[in-house]
């Protein structure tokens, strides 16, 4: 699939001398949902802001829909919608007017019916005449999303859309994202919530200290790095794992009531059968077994730790 956003060798050094992005390369395919994960200060907002034109790149090239974001900024920005991380809205404006303003700013003729549809989609229609200042934080975030959608963008950037948002709104937002994906919109979102990336992304990128550590298909990533953990509950607690079982590198569970075996699902032999036999031989009685897939979170934490 052709990439709709292409970032090549992008670096950004702020006026303070701080290098927030170190040679970032990123290709985003049309129609996909990419989740960018990274700890605070990783450079997620800087990367998005540079693509959207708020931050000037120090070096490198960015193109959106084939338009260079600096030389052909109009062509590039026509396609982009941005939901910023911070709630930055004109406080005294009415919701409907704020969304219509965004539409005009992107060169689109007034279209009350379109704005109404966007507001309804975000459950904001009954607030259309409210002054923004009087809305709750979650409502303001919806207004930010409505503003970003007001001109019908082809590429939508959501910078931490779930920060400070309750479960319901998060679910609503995921539904909106799913609708947009069906409509062919490319979505890039940053998040600290691994579940969010797991729930809605097609691909996951991990960024830390201004570098992209990996970008991979979510399913492939989880499979490639996916390890399973077998929890074995014991009838009687043990103080330590018996010598005879050292080869399995078992972890002892809480209060010695269980042992945990980590194995690779891709391996030729998982070693489960022999382990169970050896357990019995060692005189341990099992009461229950459970396996767990390691989550993106484990992968993420492992990657970021590994870099330190």
């Amino acid at each position: 699939m052709p990439s709709i956003v292409s970032v090549r060798d992008l670096t950004k050094t702020y006026a303070s001398g701080f290098q927030a992005l170190k040679s970032v390369n990123l290709e985003i395919a049309e129609g996909e949902i990419l989740a960018l994960l990274g700890p605070n200060g990783a450079g997620k907002t800087t990367l998005i802001s540079t693509i959207c034109g708020i931050v000037q790149p120090t070096s490198g090239q960015i193109s959106v829909g084939g338009h260079d974001v600096v030389r052909d900024f109009r062509g590039a920005r026509d396609l982009i919608g941005l939901v910023p991380q911070e709630i930055t809205l004109e406080p005294f404006e009415k919701v409907f007017n704020a969304v219509s303003f965004s539409r005009g700013l992107f060169g689109k003729a007034p279209d009350a019916a379109y704005v109404e549809r966007v507001l309804r989609q975000l459950s904001l229609w009954d607030k259309k005449d409210s002054i923004i200042q009087r809305l709750s934080g979650g409502m303001k975030r919806r207004v930010l999303i409505a503003k970003a959608l007001a001109h019908g963008p082809r590429v939508l950037f959501l910078d931490e859309p779930s920060a400070g948002v309750d479960v319901e709104l998060r679910k609503d937002m995921w539904a909106v994202v799913a609708d947009l994906k069906v409509a062919g919109v490319t979505i890039i979102l940053t998040t600290h919530y691994i579940e969010e990336a797991e729930a809605i992304a097609d691909r996951v990128g991990v960024i830390n200290k201004g570098e992209i550590l990996l970008v991979e298909d979510k399913a492939a990533l989880m499979q490639r790095m996916g390890q399973k953990r077998l929890h074995i509950d014991l009838a009687a607690p043990i103080a330590a794992v018996p010598e005879a079982l050292a080869a399995y590198a078992l972890d002892l569970g809480p209060e010695g009531r269980s042992v945990i075996f980590t194995y690779d699902t891709k391996g030729e032999r998982t070693g489960i059968v022999t382990l169970l036999n050896d357990l019995r031989a060692a005189g341990l009685q099992m009461t229950d077994l459970a396996t767990r897939q390691s989550s993106l979170e484990d992968i993420f934490v492992g990657l970021v730790r590994g870099q330190v």
């Binding site: 959207c52 034109g53 708020i54 900024f73 109009r74 062509g75 590039a76 920005r77 026509d78 982009i80 941005l82 910023p84 911070e86 930055t88 809205l89 004109e90 406080p91 965004s102 700013l105 992107f106 060169g107 503003k147």
Partner: peptide, 16 residues
């Protein structure tokens, strides 16, 4: 807008 941050919209819109 510079103070409250809503200038982001002007900067990211296709306006010169």
């Amino acid at each position: 807008p510079k103070f409250i941050g809503s200038i982001y919209e002007l900067l990211s819109a296709p306006v010169s």
